[in-house]
């Protein structure tokens, strides 16, 4: 059984947020949901100002607070390390969201009326722009069931009243592909691989680079390692946060 982990090289990230777009397209997430998010930080005062970037996927913790508190076992950790949500079991109590210190959970406050895929064929705007020729599209992999229990965990399922979050693109990982954010980064900030394999790229990177994990002091044991940088201090200011505010 592999032990999946992700490394994020902070010295390479330039804050283009291409990973966020890749994630939205791959997982068809509704408006204002960012399963992958990139903080843009500003530190110190002019003229010493420093701007830096910190991508924030789900940390897929080994001691995940969200898994511990889920009352029905809808949020669970697979043996290969992926922390997933069973969209058909979730009752929508949002306890996982409250327990998670990273803020990676997004609740479906309504049925999404705008999504990244064109699976909403009755949208008149899509119809008029494409002269009714664009076929509806839906990633077929996201409809499959994964894991020994065959639970419905892949993204692109956006039922009203259930929680959703980064799945490490389980439907791609199961096919041997990298998560969408990893594959789409123009400067290779992310690496994804097996910690148990000493020759995997994440094992090599972790051997040769200084690294930290986000909010390690909370005892969550995250599976996402940040290379070449420092955790954000409480003094950093977030600049250019996403607009997505109250729409849900």
């Amino acid at each position: 059984m592999p032990r999946y982990a992700m490394t994020i090289d902070l010295s390479r990230c330039m804050g283009c947020r291409a990973c966020m777009v890749a994630c939205k397209v791959e997982n068809n997430t509704p408006e204002a949901h960012f399963w992958m998010y990139v903080f843009r930080f500003e530190e110190e005062e002019y003229p010493k100002t420093r701007v830096w970037f910190l991508p924030r996927p789900c940390q897929h913790c080994d001691n995940a607070p969200c898994v511990k508190v889920c009352p029905v076992g809808a949020r669970y950790k697979r043996d290969d390390g992926l922390v997933l949500t069973d969209f058909q079991r979730c009752i929508g109590c949002r306890y996982c969201e409250v327990a998670c210190p990273y803020g990676v959970n997004y609740f479906h406050w309504k049925h999404p009326d705008k999504a990244q895929y064109l699976d909403y064929t009755d949208d008149p705007e899509v119809k008029s722009r494409t002269n009714n020729t664009m076929p509806p599209y839906r990633n077929p992999d996201a409809d499959l069931r994964y894991g020994p229990e065959e639970r419905l965990t892949a993204g692109a399922h956006h039922y009203r009243g259930v929680i959703g979050k980064c799945t490490f693109c389980v439907h791609r990982v199961e096919k041997g592909l990298e998560p969408a954010c990893v594959a789409n980064c123009p400067v290779r900030v992310f690496e994804f691989g097996d910690l148990d394999d000493p020759n995997s790229i994440v094992s090599q990177k972790l051997r040769t680079n200084p690294h930290f994990r986000l909010l390690e002091e909370e005892g969550t044991k995250p599976r996402v390692y940040y290379l070449m940088g420092n955790p954000p201090s409480p003094e950093v200011r977030q600049v250019m946060p996403v607009k997505g505010g109250k729409r849900g």
Partner: peptide
């Protein structure tokens, strides 16, 4: 409060886990 109240009634009886403070 629940997003899926009907599922809540069924799944709590079926799957409720003692690890969760909600139990």
């Amino acid at each position: 409060d629940l997003g899926q109240p009907l599922r809540g009634i069924a799944n709590l009886f079926r799957y409720a886990r003692p690890q969760s403070p909600f139990f």
